[in-house]
């Protein structure tokens, strides 16, 4: 029997790792990867909650999260390709035209 808190804790740790990666890396690929990690952690939290109450709702929610992640990756990669075309690099520090 795995205590429910431990499951959530693992999800939290994974989420935090993804967060740190997001804040640190400048490369867009790594930022997208970190986002994936975070979403994965969140989805796992859903599944853990569903398992705790022995209801399939958690897994259904997990499916939706998966769908959203997939859609998001598709668009994100398309934008990445565009950025590569325009800036010749994928450094997010170049994306500062919203300055001031």
């Amino acid at each position: 029997m795995i205590p429910f808190e431990m499951q959530i804790l693992v999800a939290a740790i994974l989420f935090t790792i993804g967060l740190i990666g997001l804040l640190t890396r400048r490369n867009l690929i790594f930022m997208l990867m970190s986002v994936e990690i975070m979403m994965n952690a969140g989805a796992f939290a859903f599944v853990a909650a569903g398992a705790r109450w022995i209801q399939p709702d958690g897994q259904v929610m997990f499916l939706f999260v998966l769908t959203v992640a997939a859609a998001e990756v598709a668009i994100a990669l398309a934008l990445l390709i565009l950025m590569h075309k325009l800036f010749k690099s994928v450094d997010t520090n170049q994306l500062n035209s919203l300055k001031n």
Binding site: Q7, V10, L14, A43, V47, A48, A51, G58, F62
Partner: peptide, 21 residues
């Protein structure tokens, strides 16, 4: 993570993770 999900009793989610994610 998929393995973790299998161990807590959610095999469907585990397999889905492998295939899709």
């Amino acid at each position: 993570v998929s393995m973790m999900m299998y161990t807590i009793g959610a095999p469907y989610a585990a397999v889905l993770e492998i295939i899709v994610y």
